[in-house]
Amino acid sequence: MSWDKDWRTSEIIFWPEREEVDKYVYTPGISGQELAKALMDGRVLGIKCKDGQVYVPPKTYCPDFSQGELVEIRGPWRLLHYTVVYEDLYGNRLQNPIVIGIIKPDDASNGLIHIVNAELERLRPGMELKPVFKPKDQRKGIITDIDHFEPV
């Protein structure tokens, strides 16, 4: 009965070994396919929309529902906003804090989210950063082909 609940956790049965499934195949989409090729080539693409705005990373469609055109992003890149992660979701302190930034190229309207390798005292919105790509044979066509951003 609903009013007759067990209240001692030792009497309640758990199956702690069960986990959620997490294996999927993801296709990148039309623009994502082109971005994947560009990343493996050490380049970044954006999408130029009907209203002239350029967004990174490029989606297959624009926020205004128009189909944009792919353009190469050349930079320079600047730190727009940043945060520093000191703890994980469960409250454990990380061994090394992680700096995460919104890094906006001058030739786009928004920025990429990425890891920033810079001393905490040096972090300033507006500072110029550059993408550091992984060695070519380690690139997979996803965002981590850029290993991190660092000060110029």
């Binding site: 994502g32 992660v85 990380l94 992680i98 995460i100 989210i113 996803i142």
Partner: peptide, 12 residues
């Protein structure tokens, strides 16, 4: 899954 999840960000 391709443009954000793989980054080692430490805490969502």
């Amino acid at each position: 899954p391709l443009h954000l999840r793989p980054l080692p960000t430490g805490n969502p």
